[in-house]
Simulated scan of single mutants.
Amino acid sequence: MTAPAPGADGPSLRSRTAQHYSVAPVLDTPEGYVAPGMPGVPVTGYAPPAPAAHRRPRHRRTALAVALALLAALLGGLAYGCAPLRAADSLGWLTIAQAGLVALPLGRLGGRSRLLPALAALLAAGALFLGQLTQQLRRLHAAGPTPHGLLHDTLTTWRAELRPLDLAFYAIALVGGFLLTRRTANRG
């Protein structure tokens, strides 16, 4: 196919009969010109940003994270223990929520420390233990005064009523606290 009008593709070194649409026109470009975006193009008008004096590096707030996790474990355990006594059998699954409450401040504020997931696992299991002891204490207090001592009788009753399902809830608390802390630390 030939060009419809002479010179439509620009000046060419070929004869007019051999000029095709597929032939790129010769551009009038200065010597050493490189198209924008190609390697070797000098970048103009760009200055690297100056380091900001007001921008501080992000510090881990480990002490604050541990304090908030202890508070969350204490409040979660007390809330677990103060739930209605008739619902005690179905409360074990709230262990996941307790582990999440403990893991959130440790993961978000504490960062990616190797110690914090293990601490969260222990705090989540401790919150479950505190909740179960609070439930036993409420039961013994409702039954009347005890001759030995309140703490001794509470621990004895707790140990006597410990079931395999309770041990599964402790395992859920340990694993949930550990994994949730690692996941929240990786997101931040």
Results as ranks from 00 to 15, higher is better:
1 M>H: 13
3 A>W: 15
3 A>L: 10
6 P>R: 13
9 D>N: 15
10 G>N: 09
10 G>Y: 00
12 S>E: 07
12 S>M: 13
12 S>I: 00
14 R>W: 12
15 S>N: 05
16 R>D: 12
18 A>F: 15
19 Q>A: 11
19 Q>C: 09
20 H>N: 14
20 H>P: 07
22 S>K: 11
22 S>G: 04
23 V>E: 10
25 P>V: 02
26 V>S: 04
27 L>G: 10
28 D>W: 01
31 E>F: 08
34 V>R: 04
36 P>K: 04
38 M>N: 15
38 M>L: 14
42 P>K: 07
44 T>E: 15
44 T>R: 15
46 Y>T: 06
46 Y>N: 00
46 Y>R: 02
48 P>L: 05
48 P>N: 05
48 P>A: 06
48 P>I: 05
51 P>H: 02
53 A>Y: 13
53 A>R: 06
55 R>T: 14
58 R>F: 14
58 R>H: 13
65 A>S: 00
66 V>Y: 00
66 V>F: 00
69 A>Q: 02
69 A>G: 06
70 L>P: 03
70 L>G: 01
72 A>N: 07
74 L>P: 09
74 L>D: 03
81 G>L: 01
82 C>N: 11
84 P>Q: 07
86 R>I: 12
86 R>H: 12
86 R>S: 15
87 A>T: 11
87 A>G: 10
88 A>D: 07
90 S>M: 13
90 S>H: 14
95 T>D: 04
95 T>A: 08
96 I>C: 03
97 A>L: 14
97 A>C: 06
98 Q>D: 14
99 A>L: 08
99 A>R: 11
99 A>P: 11
100 G>F: 13
101 L>R: 06
102 V>C: 02
103 A>L: 12
104 L>Y: 12
104 L>K: 09
104 L>C: 06
105 P>A: 08
107 G>L: 01
109 L>S: 03
109 L>N: 03
110 G>Q: 02
112 R>I: 01
112 R>S: 04
113 S>E: 00
113 S>V: 00
118 A>Q: 11
119 L>N: 01
121 A>T: 02
122 L>W: 01
122 L>F: 08
122 L>V: 08
123 L>N: 08
124 A>D: 08
126 G>S: 01
127 A>M: 08
127 A>Y: 07
127 A>Q: 10
128 L>A: 10
128 L>V: 05
128 L>N: 03
129 F>Q: 09
132 Q>A: 03
133 L>E: 10
133 L>Q: 15
134 T>H: 12
135 Q>L: 13
136 Q>Y: 02
136 Q>E: 13
143 A>S: 02
143 A>M: 03
143 A>P: 03
143 A>R: 15
144 G>S: 13
145 P>M: 09
145 P>I: 04
146 T>D: 09
146 T>Y: 04
148 H>C: 11
148 H>L: 15
148 H>A: 12
150 L>D: 11
152 H>M: 04
153 D>I: 15
153 D>F: 06
154 T>M: 13
155 L>E: 06
155 L>C: 12
155 L>T: 09
158 W>G: 01
161 E>W: 14
164 P>K: 12
164 P>L: 08
165 L>C: 02
165 L>A: 14
166 D>A: 05
167 L>F: 01
168 A>C: 12
168 A>Q: 02
169 F>W: 11
169 F>E: 10
172 I>Q: 07
175 V>P: 07
175 V>S: 12
178 F>R: 03
178 F>Y: 05
178 F>T: 00
179 L>K: 12
185 A>G: 10
185 A>V: 15
187 R>C: 11
